[in-house]
Every structure is written in structure tokens, then in C-alpha cells.
């Protein structure tokens, strides 16, 4: 029998039923209104585009990690994988030109994703440790590849490579277009196709999914392929934006990405979350940073604010589900 004996249960539930489903959207709305009231520059179109643009790299990576997390796994390797793809594409650009460099970089990055997918999906190894190991290993791979040197594109005028990071179509920055396009495609994939349904089933209960004839290993494998594809895209945008890069450009991003996905309401237990909510999670992180900057606060204040918001968001989610605010653990 479900434990519903808490006295604060019913009140919290009725408010919570709505918030539980749309809490993150509501929070986002309140947040935007709050900032808009305190600073008029906040709702300036240029400002908003600027925020979205600076969130695209994190955002693109978060889209892929959403699949991994919904299927019940983790991916802590996306940060160092992004560094890898950035360094590789810049180096290859100098050697064989952008036309070949880009597909080759995608192939290399996605084969790393395939390796992780194989280890976690087919060999059933714990994803936290596998991707932790891969974080370190890929970082080493990047350093070996680059020899520890920064990569730069020597003749920046002679190439169209900058279009992914700096170009505009109809006045809208290309990275934003890529982010939106990818988000729409992946949202459709997750919400509307049989594959998406299987991702939820595997994350919700992988044994029951197997007993229903769903190839668990292949589904998990595919989520890591998607994740690595997103990472490669993010690496491309990063490389094209700065036309040069350090070996550590993605360091630490794995946890920020995860924070955005969790903020969007995906459960680390798997089976819950959507692409749309992840996008909201990414934007919240972006706008917090922006809003705090406009208030004249330093960038690092956002770390503290993010900390508080993540815990409140997940806490609210849990509190609604269990029907009481505080944990029943004695």
C-alpha cells in the first residue's frame, strides 16, 4: 500500500500535480519575468539571441545526453569527447580541408561513442564508471593527437569553415539554427517514433523491456551513438566559432550538461524526461548566467544559483511524487 499518511500530502499533491508536470516551465516563466522586471535590457532581442547563441554548445550536447539519461545511463565523457572532436576537426582542416575534415571528425567521434555504447549496451558495464574511464582516456587521446599543442586555423580568410560558428542565415546565427534543427529532429525521434518509445521502456524497466522483445543492448548502443553525434556537432560549432582551440576546451562540461538535463526533469533512474524540457533546462542555465551578469554580478555567482536551483527542482519533483516535503528516512 502506498504511503499516503502524511498530513501535508493532499495539499501538496493538488498544487504539485500541476507543478510536477510543468514545474520547470513555470519556474522558467517566473524567472524570465523576474529578470525582465528588474532589467529592461534583459528582454532585448539581441540579448536573448546572444544568450541562446552562447548556450548552443552546451545545449547541443545536452540533447544527446538526454537520450542516454532517459535510457537509464550516464555519459560523463561528453566534455573530453567534445575537446577531442574540436582538436581533430581543426587539425584535419589544416591537412585535408574542411570538406573531408568534417565527415572524418564525425566518424572518429562517433566511433568513440560506439565503443562506449558497446561497453555499456552489449557488455552491460556500469555506465558511470565506463564513461568516467573514457573521460580520462579520451582526454589522453586528445593530448596524444595534438601533442599537447593548441590548434589554430592559419589562414582564416581562405576557408568557409567559420560558417558553423559565426555565420548567419536570414539574420539568425547558424549555431542557433543548428541547435533548433537538431532539437526538433531529436524531439520528434524521442516522442514520436518506435525507437523513442523503446528508449523510455529500457530506461523505465530494462528487464520488462527485454521480456517484451525490445533489444535492450541495441537501444542503449544507439543512445550513445546519438550522444556522440551531438558531441561532434558541438565540437564543430566550437571549432568554427573560435577557429582555434585548446585541448581542454570541453573540460568540466560533462557535469554542466548533466545539470541541464536534470534541471529539465530527466530522472537519473531513467524512463523520464523530454528533449523540450532539456532545452528549457539549458536555457535556464543560460539565462541565469546572463541575468546575473546584467545585474552586475560575476559569472561565478551563477554556479551558486545553479546549485540551489538544481536541488530545489529535483527536490520539488520528488516531494510531489512521494506526497510529502521531507524525506521519511529517520
Amino acid at each position: 500500500m502506498a504511503d499516503v499518511s502524511a498530513s501535508d500530502g493532499t495539499a501538496l499533491r493538488s498544487v504539485g500535480a500541476f507543478l510536477g508536470r510543468h514545474g520547470i516551465v513555470v519556474a522558467f516563466g517566473l524567472f524570465m519575468i523576474g529578470f525582465a522586471l528588474t532589467n529592461e535590457r534583459f528582454i532585448d532581442m539581441d540579448n536573448i539571441l546572444g544568450v541562446i547563441r552562447s548556450s548552443t554548445i552546451l545545449g547541443v550536447m545536452a540533447l544527446g545526453v538526454t537520450f542516454v539519461v532517459i535510457s537509464g545511463n550516464l555519459d560523463l565523457s561528453v566534455g573530453s569527447m567534445m575537446s577531442f572532436s574540436t582538436i581533430v576537426v581543426l587539425d584535419l582542416h589544416e591537412r585535408i580541408g574542411p570538406e573531408l575534415a568534417i565527415p572524418l571528425m564525425f566518424a572518429m567521434t562517433m566511433s568513440l561513442g560506439a565503443l562506449i555504447g558497446f561497453l555499456v549496451g552489449y557488455l552491460r558495464l556500469n555506465s558511470l564508471i565506463v564513461t568516467l574511464g573514457m573521460l580520462s582516456a579520451i582526454h589522453g587521446l586528445t593530448l596524444t593527437y595534438s601533442g599537447g599543442q593548441n590548434m589554430d586555423i592559419a589562414d582564416q580568410q581562405a576557408t568557409w569553415f567559420s560558417v558553423f560558428g559565426q555565420g548567419r542565415v536570414l539574420g539568425i546565427p547558424v549555431p542557433i539554427l543548428m541547435f533548433v534543427l537538431l532539437a526538433v529532429v531529436l524531439a520528434t525521434l524521442l516522442a514520436k517514433t518506435p525507437f523513442g518509445r523503446k528508449v523510455y521502456a529500457v530506461g523505465g524497466n530494462d528487464v520488462a523491456a527485454t521480456f517484451s522483445g525490445i533489444p535492450r543492448a541495441r537501444v542503449v548502443f544507439m543512445t550513445y551513438i546519438i550522444s556522440s553525434f551531438c558531441v561532434a556537432t558541438a565540437g564543430l560549432i566550437q571549432a568554427s566559432r573560435s577557429m582555434g582551440s585548446q585541448n581542454t576546451v570541453g573540460q568540466g562540461m560533462e557535469l554542466e550538461v548533466l545539470a541541464a538535463v536534470i534541471l529539465g526533469g530527466a530522472s537519473l533512474m531513467g524512463g523520464a524526461g523530454t528533449v523540450f524540457k532539456t532545452v528549457i533546462g539549458v536555457l535556464i542555465l543560460g539565462f541565469i548566467q546572463n541575468g546575473l551578469l546584467l545585474l552586475g554580478l560575476e559569472f561565478y555567482v551563477q554556479y551558486v544559483v545553479t546549485w540551489i536551483i538544481i536541488i530545489l527542482a529535483v527536490w520539488l519533483d520528488i516531494a510531489v511524487k512521494r506526497g510529502r516535503l521531507w524525506s521519511p528516512i529517520a
Binding site: 517514433t193 518506435p194 528487464v207 520488462a208 523491456a209 524512463g271
Partner: peptide
Amino acid sequence: KEQGLVLGMNCRDNITLPQVDDLTAGPFV
């Protein structure tokens, strides 16, 4: 509970789970 159902999914999706590949219109469910 362990082998038969994905408890967090709705009734319809649980019933159609083994044949979701065939219940499509174009690429979509």
C-alpha cells in the same frame, strides 16, 4: 512488476510495446 510491465509508462504504451515497430504511419508511431 519486474518482468511484465514498465510501471512508469501508461497503459496503452505497455500493451503496444512488443509491436510498436509495426504500429506506424510513416516513420512515426
